[in-house]
Simulated scan of single mutants.
Amino acid sequence: MPPEPLLPNEPQDDPESYVGLAQQDAEDRARARGWTAVRSLAPGTVITMEFLSGRLNFEVKDGQVHRAWKG
Rank of each mutant, 00 (worst) to 15 (best):
V19Q: 03
F58D: 01
L21Y: 11
S53D: 04
D14H: 06
I47D: 06
E4H: 05
S40R: 12
L21H: 06
L21I: 01
G34P: 00
E4V: 09
A32Y: 05
V19R: 12
R33I: 00
S53P: 05
T45H: 07
T48G: 15
P3Q: 11
P15S: 02
E27F: 03
D62P: 03
V65G: 10
D14K: 06
L7P: 01
V65K: 06
G63D: 04
Q64Y: 11
R33N: 15
P11I: 01
D14L: 04
P15D: 03
Q24W: 11
D25Q: 10
V19K: 12
M49Y: 12
G63H: 12
D13K: 10
M1N: 05
A26H: 00
D28N: 10
E10D: 09
R39I: 11
R29P: 00
A22K: 15
V38A: 03
M1I: 05
A37W: 06
V65L: 12
I47G: 00
L7W: 02
N9D: 15
D28V: 08
V38Y: 04
E10P: 03
Q24D: 15
K61A: 13
T48F: 14
E10R: 01
H66I: 15
L21K: 12
Y18K: 01
R33M: 13
V38R: 01
L52M: 10
G54F: 12
E59M: 12
A42F: 00
E50Q: 14
E16Q: 07
Q12H: 13
A26Q: 01
P43H: 09
D14Q: 05
R33S: 15
F51K: 02
P8N: 03
G34A: 02
G20P: 05
R33T: 13
N57L: 08
R31I: 03
M49I: 09
T36E: 09
L52I: 09
L7M: 05
P11L: 00
R33W: 01
H66P: 00
Q12Y: 13
V46D: 13
R39T: 14
F51A: 03
L6D: 04
F58S: 00
N57S: 12
G44H: 06
Q12L: 15
M49N: 14
D28I: 03
S17N: 09
P43L: 10
D25A: 10
L6N: 06
Q23H: 05
P5T: 04
Y18Q: 02
P8Y: 06
V60L: 06
A32Q: 14
